[in-house]
């Protein structure tokens, strides 16, 4: 293998080159591409010396999903059409190979959302750490926002440690991790029940049925109040959490009847957000306290409630039929809570 077509779409630069035996034959780049699609086609339609290319080298990240996918699928298509191999290389390694490092150096790239991808390299541009993603203020200082050159990609392809076939997304895909700003709270509608049932079934060993939910909703707004959290980042909004209370009147306790967050959205403070909202509502209703039942074995839920000032006041043995005891927890409401 002597002549390579090199491609990288892991940064805002779309980079294309032809390299033969470590010498640049042609190189071109387009800056500021968001999708890379048009830019890649533009560069490849101008590239010279591509007829004799016998392998393709493509940067596989870390970097934004969309750009990486475009670069990789393009490289694979080109290679498949020619019947030649393609090689994926770590883009950060290719950057290190593009630079002359005189000592240990950290190279980091913007990963958006106040995070950076980074790795540490020795004076010979060999990676001596894992590739990581960290909050901006936790990344060691070093070289920032450089991008790979065709020569760097070519050199990386000659280093077995830099070769990978799977895209390096590092971060969990957006599908599972919508930004919290795209999650909105609103009142529950009958429409939502299909979605809620499927979350409910994934969460609880003894899920409510459609009939039970409908019975609850029947009493809205007289003695029930139900809300959902909706993720609006995708083409279609979808529900990721829900909660509801029952109340009788001023001075009486308010009962939390249900509270659930879809599995893949847990651990991001959404349960807390629902709970905050319900407590606020209870205060507006003039309730004396908030009561709830939680299954003994449901540790995450118990921890959430304990953190919010709920204490165990009784235990209902065998309440959840086959699934164990229910703990009754209570949080007294005082006027000072309003300002906490």
């Amino acid at each position: 293998m002597r002549r390579a077509l090199t491609i990288d779409t892991s940064s805002a630069h779309t980079i294309v080159g032809v390299v033969e035996d470590g010498e640049i034959i042609w190189s071109g780049e387009i800056e500021g591409a968001t999708s890379h699609g048009g830019a890649l086609g533009e560069l490849v339609s101008r590239v010279e010396g591509v007829a004799e290319v016998d392998h393709v080298i493509v940067g596989i990240g870390p970097g934004p999903f969309t750009g990486l996918r475009v670069g990789i699928i393009f490289a694979q298509g080109f290679a498949k059409a020619r019947g030649i191999p393609w090689i994926g290389v770590v883009s950060l390694d290719a950057i290190a190979q593009s630079l002359k490092l005189s000592r240990d150096t950290v190279i980091s790239l913007d990963a958006r959302r106040k995070e950076r991808y980074w790795a540490r390299y020795d004076e010979k541009s060999q990676r001596i750490s894992e590739i990581s993603i960290s909050k901006v203020d936790q990344v060691p200082s070093g070289i920032v926002d450089a991008f790979p050159t065709p020569l760097g990609l070519f050199r990386a392809a000659n280093n077995p440690r830099s070769i990978r076939t799977e895209p390096l997304y590092l971060r969990k895909p957006d599908a599972a991790l919508a930004p919290l700003t795209s999650i909105h709270l609103r009142e529950l509608r009958t429409f939502d029940l299909g979605e809620i049932l499927s979350i409910e079934r994934g969460l609880f060993p003894d899920p409510w049925t459609l009939g039970q939910f409908k019975e609850e909703l029947h009493s809205v707004p007289r003695s029930r109040y139900y809300v959902v959290l909706e993720d609006q980042s995708g083409a279609q909004p979808r529900i990721v959490g829900y909660a509801g209370i029952a109340f009788t009147g001023g001075g009486e306790p308010v009962d939390i009847h249900t509270l659930g967050v879809a599995k893949e959205f847990q651990g991001r403070g959404l349960g807390q957000r629902l709970l905050d909202h319900l407590i606020e509502r209870a205060l507006t209703l003039g309730a004396s306290s908030v009561l709830l039942e939680v299954r003994d074995g449901n540790e995450p839920a118990r921890a959430l409630y304990a953190k919010n000032g709920f204490t165990e006041i009784s235990r209902r043995v065998g309440y959840y039929a086959r699934f164990g005891d229910a703990l009754v927890m209570e949080k007294p409401l005082h006027s000072t809570d309003v300002h906490q």
Partner: peptide, 12 residues
């Protein structure tokens, strides 16, 4: 973008 990326790679 995935479709056009693959298609342009093949066409090129």
């Amino acid at each position: 973008l995935v479709g056009t990326g693959g298609a342009t790679g093949l066409a090129a």
